[in-house]
């Protein structure tokens, strides 16, 4: 598997303390991406599934408070074949697994049985607008969301809030209306207000000019979602 970064993190990439692998390559080109170095399909350092499995096993001590291993990216599902193999082996080793995905993979449902904690981005309800800023529409993501809800399975939906892109006043309602259209008692929703932690890593021109959202905007989204019966969390 091609990995461009790894490290431990607490509470932000799934429950407890987690070993986070950033897999190389992404099918989206989000203009606000905080890990632009992971976009290119080529690059990263290659590790065999067994080498990673061994490292995960030796890291058990750090999986405290319900922690484990999280795969993110880039977009981890672009390496679905090896990812599936490793997820299966981690489950055999009784290690908690998490996946953070943009939801665009048609193979997501195939991976699902081996993922204990799923985090899925839902960046925009409008496919055309999403395509404008990321290069990809939301059709597959919606299909995956609807299937997951149909299974009542755990999912943690993350919505980046970016001024000028998806965080204007009527948009909160449109987001909530779509997401609440599919009932799932095991779904939780989180807003990720825009930040610029990755801005300095961009080698191309950084195109977001004023992406920051106010506390009021976040509160409005929160209120609107709650009014639609959606459960909000913050990590």
């Amino acid at each position: 598997m091609h990995i461009f970064q790894k490290g431990f993190n607490f509470g932000q990439d799934g429950p407890g303390n987690r070993l986070v692998y950033h897999l190389q390559g992404c099918n989206m080109k989000c203009i606000w991406c905080s890990n632009p170095e992971g976009m290119s399909i080529s690059g990263g350092k290659y590790f065999s599934v067994d080498a990673l499995l061994d490292e995960c096993k030796r890291s058990r001590l750090m999986f405290y408070k319900g922690g484990g291993v999280t795969f993110t990216g880039g977009e981890a599902t672009l390496q679905a074949e090896e990812l599936l193999d490793l997820l299966k082996k981690l489950k055999e080793a009784e290690i908690h697994t998490a996946l953070e995905t943009n939801g665009t993979s048609p193979r997501l449902m195939e991976l699902l049985p081996f993922i204990d904690y799923l985090m899925m981005d839902f960046k925009h309800y409008d496919s055309d607008i999403l395509k404008k800023y990321t290069g990809m529409g939301n059709e597959q993501t919606k299909r995956n969301y609807e299937k997951i809800c149909g299974l009542n399975r755990q999912v943690h939906i993350r919505i980046p809030l970016i001024n000028g892109i998806n965080a204007q006043n009527p948009e909160a309602f449109a987001f909530a209306a779509y997401l609440a259209g599919y009932s799932n008692p095991n779904a939780v929703y989180e807003f990720l207000p825009y930040h610029e932690y990755g801005k300095e890593k961009w080698t191309q021109k950084y195109l977001v000019s004023d992406g920051f959202v106010t506390g009021e905007t976040v509160a409005l989204f929160k209120k609107t979602f709650e009014e639609h019966g959606l459960k909000i969390i913050a990590t």
């Binding site: 790894k6 490290g7 303390n17």
Partner: peptide, 12 residues
Amino acid sequence: SNGLGFRILSNM
């Protein structure tokens, strides 16, 4: 060079 978690694991 792999960060705090790995360093703690060695230390442990």
